[in-house]
Design a protein around this nucleic acid. Structure first.
Lengths: 214, 214
DNA sequence: TGTACATCAGTGAACGCGCGTTCACTGATGTAC
DNA sequence: TGTACATCAGTGAACGCGCGTTCACTGATGTAC
């Protein structure tokens, strides 16, 4: 144990963060299910047994990452919702699409690994983590559906159609985050953002003309 | 080695199939990256070393599964494309959506594990497998874009907008396959199919009104 | 302020286990004559 | 058809390695007086 200027609590928190960050990075190659406690320990320079001072198991670490990741996702959605009321865009829908993609790109820079964690572990995670992600994604979809219900264009929509559109948007959003994660440089990011924007324009302009009563 | 009525070649092929099937099933829990050669061998009742008579490594097995899975995906798309020309549906777009979802449900029954394998390993697979899946998905998207370009409604669309819509459709399709994989029973399958159909109606009816020139 | 004691994050040895991979082998299937 | 030999899918022992987990420990930080 080395001497630092930090209090015991501060040092413990610092190690906990290092574990979470290392797990987030290392799980990008093969997923959380293929991650070992010893890899994490080696990465951050602690002895494997020290891991147990912070988490009871890899699964518990995974659930902590699920919590953090959904905080990031919700922060992104909060920004996406924050429409400039004095928007000079040609229509409300276009303004929504632009604002949403702006939030996506901004949060992809700070929370990219967390958001990709969700997309990945939803499909490939250990059962406990996978189920937690699925449950939380469902909640996020419900929240988004409630947002969509506020739009004038969805006045006559059924609840199930709102859910269907919300599901489409959440899935697409996570897919775009994944693409941003493989971006080669700033120019590539801009290209992906442009594509995402155009796709969202397309879907929203199209679907918001949708008549839920058929 | 037991005596069977099979020729050497037939028996070898049978073991190879058993390895592929076992890998497909076992990789559902945690992904291919968390799968071990010994698990596969134990599952099908051969000794671990016998694996090497069929594949040089787990990665090579993974690439074989990628090939099989894309054959399944392409077969599904072929059926989705096979529109009944004398359709009595209210519009061409609705007929397309219905036919596509019918193909999805039909192939989800026979190829469910292969299709879910693609969705999962595209995000969480070992690097070699992940890259192979991504490359093939891109090709499938291009093929679908070429299909979409045949529709009267896309006559004025740009190539990039066709690609954007194609990307949306492929992502959504894989998401629906994933949901079908967790269906509880026949009633649940029907519910998911209904949702998928409605979503596809929504998107196609909406976007095919889209004016690519803005 | 100084001292004596408690706390507890991180250490290091040790364990049994499953891993991928090597190697020489066995014996049923296949083939040449 | 029968015999002698070749092929090769599957066997089983062995290896060194990384795994999760246990346990008693160390020594800096924190606290009571």
């Amino acid at each position: 144990m080395t001497t630092t200027g930090l209090s015991r609590g501060e040092q413990k928190e610092r190690t906990r963060r290092a574990i979470l960050d290392a797990a987030l990075g290392l799980s990008e190659e093969g997923g959380l299910a293929a991650l070992s406690l010893r890899q994490v320990a080696k990465e951050i320079g602690i002895v494997p047994t020290a891991f147990y001072r912070h988490f009871a198991s890899i699964d518990e670490l995974g659930l902590a990452l699920v919590d953090e990741s959904f905080a990031a996702l919700r922060a992104m959605l909060r920004d996406a919702r924050a429409l400039p009321r004095d928007s000079d865009s040609r229509s409300l829908v276009v303004a929504i699409a632009n604002q949403s993609v702006a939030a996506l790109v901004a949060h992809a820079q700070t929370s990219e690994r967390h958001l990709r964690f969700l997309a990945r572990e939803r499909l490939a995670g250990p059962a406990a983590v996978r189920d937690a992600v699925r449950q939380q994604v469902q909640l996020v979809e419900q929240e988004l559906a409630a947002d969509l219900a506020q739009l004038p264009a969805t006045r006559s929509w059924s609840a199930s159609d709102l859910a269907v559109l919300s599901n489409l948007l959440v899935n697409s959003m996570l897919a775009h985050v994944e693409e941003l994660g493989h971006a080669a440089g700033p120019a590539d990011v801009e290209h992906i953002a442009t594509t995402a924007r155009r796709q969202l324009h397309m879907v929203l302009v199209g679907t918001l003309r949708w008549d839920s009563s058929r």
